[in-house]
């Protein structure tokens, strides 16, 4: 349940990046989560919703882009996506891999709705 701590930090970050008077306009908080980050998507969504409920961010929705594990083989320089947790080059069988992606846990962007035009 470290997803609760992650959701808490995510909301703190959102509050730092959006002026307080515009928090209610936040529609989407978009996150990039790598397969190696050890985050359970449904738990994170649940925690996020629980923490924003009744706050200025009540209408904010968390969207998660899942990032696969990609690596480059040091022996044959092939780039590839890892199928599971076998850290092995599919071409030459080498095990010396540099990870290109998979550890992400990044707040990518925050989408705000436009203000409703003021009634005249």
């Amino acid at each position: 349940m470290h997803e609760l701590a992650i959701a808490r930090d995510l909301i703190d970050m959102t509050r730092r990046h959006v002026p307080e008077e515009r928090l209610a306009q936040v529609e989407v908080v978009r996150l990039r989560v790598g397969s190696l980050a050890g985050v359970v998507e449904s738990s994170l969504l649940f925690c996020f919703e629980a923490l924003v409920r009744g706050t200025a961010l009540d209408s904010a929705r968390l969207e998660i882009d899942a990032i696969p594990i990609r690596a480059r083989c040091a022996d044959c320089q092939t780039d590839f996506e890892l199928p599971g947790s076998l850290f092995q080059c599919p071409d030459c069988g080498g095990g010396a891999l540099a990870l290109l992606s998979g550890n992400e846990l990044d707040l990518q962007e925050i989408v705000l709705a436009d203000l409703a035009p003021e009634a005249t």
Partner: peptide, 15 residues
């Protein structure tokens, strides 16, 4: 609609 691009680690405070 407007978009604020952040591209930062969520756990940057912990980091």
């Amino acid at each position: 609609m407007s978009v604020i691009t952040i591209e930062r680690r969520v756990l940057e405070k912990n980091d």
